[in-house]
Design a protein around this nucleic acid. Sequence first.
DNA 1: GTCTATAATTCGATAGAC
DNA 2: GTCTATCGAATTATAGAC
Lengths: 210, 210
Amino acid sequence: MKKIVVTPTTDTKEQIISVAERLFAERGFAGTTLRNVVSEARVNLAAVHYHFGSKEDLFRAVVARFARPVVEQELALLEQLQAGNEVPSVEAILTALLKPCLEILAQDKDTLLVRAQFMGRCRTEPEPIKSIATDEFAVSSEAFLDVLQRALPEQSRSQLHWKLDLVIAALIRVQTEAGQPFALLQMTDPEHIQNATEQLVKFLSPGMRS
Amino acid sequence: MKKIVVTPTTDTKEQIISVAERLFAERGFAGTTLRNVVSEARVNLAAVHYHFGSKEDLFRAVVARFARPVVEQELALLEQLQAGNEVPSVEAILTALLKPCLEILAQDKDTLLVRAQFMGRCRTEPEPIKSIATDEFAVSSEAFLDVLQRALPEQSRSQLHWKLDLVIAALIRVQTEAGQPFALLQMTDPEHIQNATEQLVKFLSPGMRS
DNA sequence: GTCTATAATTCGATAGAC
DNA sequence: GTCTATCGAATTATAGAC
């Protein structure tokens, strides 16, 4: 009888990615050493190079696992928003932009802060690390800019550009400060996240129009 | 005749601080090496330890030189704002908060991006580096929170707290993106900065009230 | 104050046994 | 796939001559 080929118990790879995501989030790319990662992940140092090749490629893997579901959901919400014939409201657009990012944090309570901080880190890393992340989010950013332009045709493209950029900056700040005293985002239950999203949309929407 | 004691031509110290500010801004604390600093500053490696003691103390010196004039001017504008009997408007408060930070960049065209990026970096550094900067700005932050509370008494303290935090996040984003294509802040002449400040205040003020 | 030389660690990456 | 052992380079910091 043919032997069953078992998939190798390689949660080693996932284990490394998870720990790396947290350490990159807390200390940045340069501030994180592979020895820190393998130590907390309880795996061998050589395993990192075997599975990923290099430190930079490990970072790339972390970004991919994190960003792709978010971008996917953002684009889905955006398409659903444009399905009708009417031009969507600013509030609806911002909600589609902010909700996936805030909700994905709640999927696993333990990773809430980690994923939030990691996303914020990516934007402030020096090149060429920064580009690894911005490239993953480029499609979604362009799509949102297009919809905003349709909702606010009287504003210039460059104006919408820096406004959208500030909206994302606010989102990231909300994420990275989640759980801190006085922060907007305190808990992970759906109602609280829904409420926080609404408050954030209310805070940002009027400025988009001015 | 008594010899004149010349002040030692120690622009070495200033030279080190300036280069360090730029490199910390671009690459963060962990991503910057003292060898990078002394190489670009054209000084000896040992000079850093002679003048500052350690890498962390050098960072402390950079923060102090940068933050103190800003905080001083913010507090002055704030006092001037409270001099009258009337409660200042949200727009006036935000202007007092944003203007010094945006204007100080224009003092020296070459240091515009540097100081902006450095301020943004400080907020995302891991502890204990982060605290070095937040401690310097703590007085000014508390003062602004107090004035905002007087202008918007119907809102809770924690609500004002996260809103003020997002205002500062937007400010920092505007600074760090200065000069980039589509960024709000493009040039360093006073009129342009004045105009950008007004647009930013317009963008943020309505959300403060909602 | 400035310099050279170097100590003492730590880093990313690799070779090779199992 | 996992491990040990190690290389070569880079790091912060210091000692001591000038």
